[in-house]
Structure formats: structure tokens, C-alpha cells
Design a protein around this nucleic acid. Structure first.
Lengths: 264, 264
DNA sequence: TCAAAAGTGTTACGCTTACACCCATGA
DNA sequence: TCATGGGTGTAAGCGTAACACTTTTGA
């Protein structure tokens, strides 16, 4: 996962193999998506899960995924999953990591049918408002847990045990989310089109934890950066002074792209 | 490569396919390593390349790679390449990215023999002193370009055209090198065990460019961080005051792990 | 009129920047 | 003794952290 400085077992280190090399492995390639959303009202980070029906790990929750088809690119497969599982019109997608496959240690679980499964995982962000699970009730609060509810948002802090090595993938995805949040504007792919500064702040708090700068400092720094434009309208939410609604200005952000900009 | 906010073509967006889904693709999985080293004497960043003998792109340079065998994990395959191509005892290795395969766009280059090739690329760092190409003359200066010289170090600034989509992989690897250099101690995986502060500075200069802090400021910041310990011995290199030799102290670095530490 | 939430201001401190300058060696 | 490269010091200034304070709303 992370880089390693380890060496493989010394026994195999310098053996100029006299015996013929083992045959090449045959693969099916799967794509598994870690899809995050943020529920601003309940202030929860959500992950999309699918309840498996078919054989391996049937009845257990897993990441939405698929096997790559003939003529289909990896990314296309990832988008296909996204379309099939959540009815979403706008999404951020990037490749996460490639895992050896469902059989974690290929030497132990000898290829059952002569093929191995490889999982190329993708990391996706969608807006909770725009994205509803294709077969669920759209809220994933677990209140109506009928048999038809196969696709659901789950709060990241309370995930069920997952099939395959999907726990690992989700953890890795969350790590990516944390990292990217600090120096790229992905927050605006999870927040609604227009949002208040405290919405933004709370998102950061929830994902990055409470080791955080003051709200007022956060506020001033972000406004000074200049890529948040005030829409003029206000958000009235119960008691308290109404908050200004902002919009992310991609044009104004351009000059700051891939520069050490830190939101912390 | 980087994340995308694009949507796939709208024509395929909401089609609840009435026709049966295409069959699953069969894959062979390859591992391609971008192996970097740093020649301190000549002050050059090096990439290990292999001259291909066999059919696709024969005679052209490519990244050292292999196909994954039965019972072999991805990482094990990457290590195998490392062992086979460079005689190295210590290396940093991490996964880079997974590319769709030699046929960039699978829809155009229809599967020639019913199988597709997937390339999981790895990023590796070795010490130039400890690592010599398994069949080259060990220096890769291109002076003795005989037929036996199949594995060679090439200066990053002057790479030949590469087979497959390996140019892309190398560029991506270089990007990773730049990023990691800024906030992780990978410099010490490329430098020799003991090094001078100007060695370190020059490495940063070469990889990150000249948009750089002063040497003296770089120096003070790094020493203040406290994970470089003075070995006591000096490096005498021609004229000029001899430089202190330092060693990276992994123990002392621990508390700084994955924190916003910036070397810039 | 009070609590809740948004927004403003202020001050101290630390780190970066941009230099100028001193030290040790080989030729 | 001079050129070369290594190493030290310092003063200005910017950015951040911590916290106090004001404003605007709903109840």
C-alpha cells in the first residue's frame, strides 16, 4: 500500500532459476468504487455500499463494483458502476489503488478455477443531493430495511463488515480523501453548488478531525485565497444570523492549481 | 490519471441495456517499474531502461517489466523485476498507477488474440552505488553501446522514445518523485548511506527545479528538524572546505511521519 | 431580550526570505 | 594567497494561532 523498504525473502533472492518459470496467471479484472458523499444536514460522511446477492460473500455488504468487459477501459467500467448504482449527473473520479485480488495471498488460496481476480479500485465523490442509490429509498437511514434495499449510503463511522478485502479499500479511500482535502479543492465536489462557510468548515472538521484551525482563521484564509465568490443570497437555518452562500469559482482557482496551497 | 469531473458520452448515460452485456475481458497482467537512481558525481537523475528483443517494439527501449505468474502477487512480481534487472540489496518500492494496457484505447485496437494486457506500474528508488544493471557495464554512459548492453541507466533529461505507453508511465513516476520529495524522506533512499548537505540540496535542485530556497536556509531548516545526524567524518572533494557527512536518522524522524513537513 | 450562529478585529509569535559574512581546504 | 565550496548570522516581513468582540437573526 504505502511504499516499502523491505526485501523479499532472502531464499528467493539470488536464485538464477534452473527450473522453468511458472506459467503466467490469467486474470479477470474488477473495478471497485469507494464512493463518498457528505450529508450536510446530518453532518455525516457517507459511503455507498451494495448488498451482495450472489455466491461469494452473499448477503454481505460490499463496495459497488463490476468486472471489466471486452472493449471497455478501466475508467469506463468505473463510470458504468457509478451510473448503475447511483443516479448521478456529476462526479469526481480517480483511480485509487490496485489490489492483488479477492484472494489476498495468492499462494495460499490456490487458483480455484485457474483464474485470478484483480481489483482496480476507484475513488469517487458525489453530491448527496444529486445522487440517490438506484434501488434504495435514497436516504440509507436503515429505517426501511426491506429485501429490495440493496444499495445504500452508510455513515463512514459505522460501516458494517465488508466482503472481500473491501475494508482495506475503504480505509485507503478515506486516507485519500483526507489527503486531497488538504491541498485540492475536492471539497466542492461533495458540497452542494452553493454552500456556507460553516458548511465547508464542518466538512473539514468531520473528515480531518478536530485538530483544526479556528473557524475564524479558516474563514479569513479561505476568503483571502479568492476562489470563493459570494452569491449575495443568504441561508436562513433556524436561529442565528443568516450565513452568506458562496460558490466555488474554478476560474479564480486556476492560478493556484497544484501549488502548496493548504486549507488546514 | 488525475481525477476527472468529466462525464462519459451522454448517449450511453441512461440506457437500461435491453441487449445482453458484452462478455468479460480476459487479461494478462504486467508489472512495469520506473526505477530511479541519482548519480551524485555527475549530478543526474537516472532511469533504468531495457532494450527489447522480442516482438512488439523490438529494438526499442522500455521500462523493465514482466508478466505476473501463477501464484505471484503484484508486488512480488515488481520485486522480481528489480532483482533481475539491477543487482540491488536495498530499494524503495511503491505502486504507481494501473494503465489500461499497451492498447491505449481498447475499442480501437480490438483484442488481437482475445486477451488484453494490463500494466500495473511501480515506482522504485535505488542507490546508484549499490545498484548495477544486471547486463550492462554498470554506468550507462552510452560509450560502449554493444549488442550485449540490454539494461542501462539513462539520464531522465534525455530519454529515448519508449515502447508502449511507457513515456506516460515515466512522466507519472517523475511527478510522484517530485511530490514525495517534498513531504517524505525518500531522498535518503536515493542518496548514499552518508552524504553531505549540498549533496542533498543538489538532489532537490535537480528534481524540483531551481525555484528553491536558498542553500543556507535549506540547510538551517533541515538541521533544525533534527533527523540528520552528523557522522563526524568529512568529505574532501577537491578544492574547498570539506563538508560534514550526515546520516538519516529514521528513529528521530518517526514523530514527523505523515505530518505537513515540507522540505521546499 | 436572550441564545445561537455568523462575521470582524487584534496581537504576539514563529518561520521564511534574502542577504552578508566568516571558515577551511587544495592548488 | 586565492579561488572554491562549506558554514553561520541577522534583520525585515509575512502568515498563523489564539482569542476577544460585534452583528444579525429566530424564538
Amino acid at each position: 500500500m504505502a511504499g516499502r523498504r523491505l526485501e523479499p525473502s532472502p531464499s528467493t533472492l539470488h536464485s538464477p532459476s534452473a527450473h522453468p518459470a511458472p506459467p503466467l496467471a490469467d486474470f479477470k479484472v474488477g473495478v471497485d468504487n469507494t464512493i463518498f458523499a457528505f450529508d450536510g444536514d446530518r453532518q455525516t460522511l457517507l459511503v455507498l455500499l451494495v448488498k451482495r446477492r450472489s455466491d461469494p460473500f452473499a448477503g454481505q455488504w460490499s463496495l459497488p463494483g463490476t468486472l471489466v468487459r471486452v472493449g471497455e477501459s478501466l475508467e469506463a467500467a468505473a463510470y458504468r458502476v457509478l451510473r448503475e448504482k447511483v443516479q448521478v449527473h456529476n462526479a469526481y473520479l480517480e483511480q485509487l489503488y490496485t489490489f492483488g485480488g479477492p484472494d489476498r495471498d495468492p499462494r495460499e488460496a490456490a487458483d480455484s478455477f485457474g483464474i485470478r481476480y484483480l481489483s482496480v479500485s476507484y475513488f469517487a465523490l458525489v453530491r448527496h443531493g444529486d445522487a440517490s442509490p438506484a434501488n434504495g429509498d435514497g436516504h440509507g437511514d436503515g429505517s426501511s430495511d426491506g429485501d429490495s434495499a440493496l444499495i445504500r449510503w452508510h455513515p463512514f463511522t459505522n460501516l458494517p463488515p465488508l466482503a472481500f478485502d473491501h475494508d482495506r479499500i475503504v480505509r485507503y479511500g478515506h486516507q485519500r480523501l483526507r489527503n486531497k482535502l488538504e491541498y485540492s479543492p475536492i471539497a466542492f465536489d461533495v458540497l452542494p453548488e452553493t454552500f456556507t462557510l460553516s458548511d465547508l468548515y464542518r466538512l473539514y472538521q468531520i473528515v480531518l478531525g478536530d485538530q483544526f484551525s479556528d473557524y475564524s482563521n479558516f474563514r479569513t484564509r479561505l476568503l483571502k485565497l479568492g476562489f470563493l465568490c459570494d452569491t449575495g443570497s443568504k441561508a436562513h437555518r433556524g436561529a442565528g444570523r443568516p450565513a452568506s452562500l458562496y460558490r466555488f469559482d474554478a476560474k479564480a482557482f486556476e492560478p493556484l492549481r497544484d501549488r502548496p496551497l493548504v486549507f488546514v
